[in-house]
């Protein structure tokens, strides 16, 4: 289950950023997880709560944006939604499809808590 090691690396990264920014906590983490990124969103959310426990991200809300897959046909250039890598062009039936979107896997942003005066 690679989601656990991935959850730990997310926690490690956001905690490092929050500390650098002088934050005392992280209230929200925005992730971009493409539908084709090979990440099980439910498993990641589940692992995240365990991975974040006791850290600055312990109370953080995980917000997942899951962009749909988009393929581009190598024959006719048509762009169309794809569910997975074995896509077929709906126009010319070509199988030479390049994935142009949906493989994103980014920590988009974090919301840090700061102590004001």
């Amino acid at each position: 289950m690679h989601e656990m090691s991935i959850a730990l690396s997310i926690v490690e990264a956001v905690v490092a950023h929050a500390q650098k920014e002088g934050g005392v906590g992280i209230s929200e983490i925005e992730l971009l997880v493409g539908k084709l990124a090979g990440i099980e969103a439910d498993a990641l959310t589940f692992c995240f709560s365990a991975a974040a426990a006791g850290t600055l991200a312990g109370e953080a809300r995980l917000v997942l944006e899951e962009p749909e897959g988009v393929g581009e046909c190598g024959e006719c250039g048509l762009r169309f939604p794809v569910n997975f890598y074995y896509a077929e062009c709906p126009e010319c039936r070509s199988l030479r499809i390049t994935i142009v979107s949906g493989e994103e896997f980014l920590i988009q942003s974090i919301t840090i808590d700061e102590r004001g005066e």
Partner: peptide, 19 residues
């Protein structure tokens, strides 16, 4: 009183960056 303020920080960092 200290106030807790929230600040949004844009990262756009690859999750697998370290690896």
């Amino acid at each position: 009183h200290h106030e807790i303020r929230s600040r949004h920080v844009l990262l756009e960092e690859d999750v697998l960056l370290k690896n």
